[in-house]
Amino acid sequence: MTKPVFSKDLIKINDVQATINHIVERLKNDVTRVLRRQGAVVGISGGIDSSVTLALAVKAFGADKVLGVMLPEKDSSGDSKAFALKLANKFGIEVVEENISAALDGFACYQRRDEAVKRVIPSYNPDSDKMKIVIPEEFINSNLPPVFYLTVIFADGREQSERLPMAEYLQIVAASNFKQRSRMTMLYYHAEARHYAVIGTPNKHEVQQGFFVKYGDGGADVMPIGDLYKTQVYELAHALGVPREIIERTPTTDTYSAEQTQEEFFYQMPFEAMDLLWYAWENGYQPEEVASVMGKERLDIERIFRNFERKKRTTDYLRRPPIHNYN
């Protein structure tokens, strides 16, 4: 089959209802026949991905067979709960709240993270200041792989950013990953207690670019939106009746104490552009053709494609299941 000419409409879904029906049928089959489970547990954050996943699960199993679990901790945005409740109310599901802060304290999650932060910025006070990890803009237009910086926002509004040495970067990430892994553990508690499956919420970019925590938010039985680009997730959200306030929210990481968008932390470009560029790279479009449609230089597209390739390869570890075939 010949490849269509590259255009900005290439990944627009032609028939959204048909796509929803296809995913719902597949989800129903996978959970009930393949996994032999009777319903679905979905962790809901009030974000677009978990909202669409929940709406699909309700269509597949009915509201009485879907449990929504809110999993806040002390760094979570206060808005998340209100949005999650609105969503649960809209789709008529049972919802439980499990605050995982005490579990995270038990793992010394915050303590281990803050120790590393203080080694880089000694005046950081975790009781009053906020922190996040950022990638400076200079790296976006460079062939260099991104180097991460720690930003502390002090209680008086001042900000300080320092480049993270490897040991501190790794410790902050490893400690923060307790959050996603604790959430996964709690989701499986509720799933096993009801003989349900855990429905994961990552979209295609999160899966393919490795923007998830292995055995954290990457730990689930099925991922029904795992093959959808972010703009396609939004298309489904409109058709499924996800509340407008959730659709209009800027996606955040909701991981560090300071507010941080996903674009700022990981993707480094708007979703609309990233969807098209990832599609182009994945489907072997020539940089010249893509550049003219996207209004960019060929060299920029080549650099972006190289970055995609590097991201895919360096995150392969995250997507791999345990290697067990030793015979």
Binding site: N143, L144, P145, P146, V147, F148, L164, P165, M166, Y169, R306, E309, R310, R313, T314
Partner: peptide
Amino acid sequence: IFEEGIFDSMALLNLIT
């Protein structure tokens, strides 16, 4: 080394150290 895809963020941080 960056264009060949040999280096990633971890390797660059390692090199700086």
